[in-house]
Amino acid sequence: MPNQSLRTNDCVDEVIEKYADMVYRLAFSRVKNKNDADDIFQEVFLRYIKKERDFETEEHRKAWLIRVTINCSNSFFSSAWSQKVVSIADTEPAPFEPSEELGLHELLMELPVKYRTVLHLFYYEDLPINEISRILKRKPATVKTQLMRARQMLKEKLKGDLYENIPCPAEINE
Rank of each mutant, 00 (worst) to 15 (best):
L119G: 07
K144S: 14
E92H: 04
L108I: 12
V113D: 06
K159A: 15
Q146Y: 15
I49P: 00
V23N: 05
R151Y: 02
R134W: 06
R53G: 00
V15S: 02
S29K: 08
E97N: 09
L26N: 08
L136Q: 09
M109Q: 14
V12I: 14
T91I: 15
E101W: 02
R30G: 09
S87P: 03
F122R: 02
E125K: 02
R116L: 05
L121K: 04
M153V: 00
E110H: 05
W81L: 12
I66Q: 06
V23P: 03
P169E: 07
K32R: 15
H105F: 15
Q42R: 13
E58P: 00
R53V: 11
P112S: 04
L46F: 10
K84V: 12
T145L: 13
R149F: 04
L6F: 08
L108S: 01
S73G: 13
L127A: 02
V86C: 01
T91E: 13
E106I: 01
D13F: 10
M109W: 01
A94H: 01
E59T: 08
I49M: 14
N130T: 14
T142L: 07
P140W: 10
D90E: 14
K34H: 05
M1Q: 05
P98E: 08
V143R: 03
W81G: 01
F122A: 03
Y124H: 08
S5K: 10
S5T: 13
E156K: 12
L147P: 03
L108C: 09
E59D: 15
N74I: 06
D161T: 14
I88T: 10
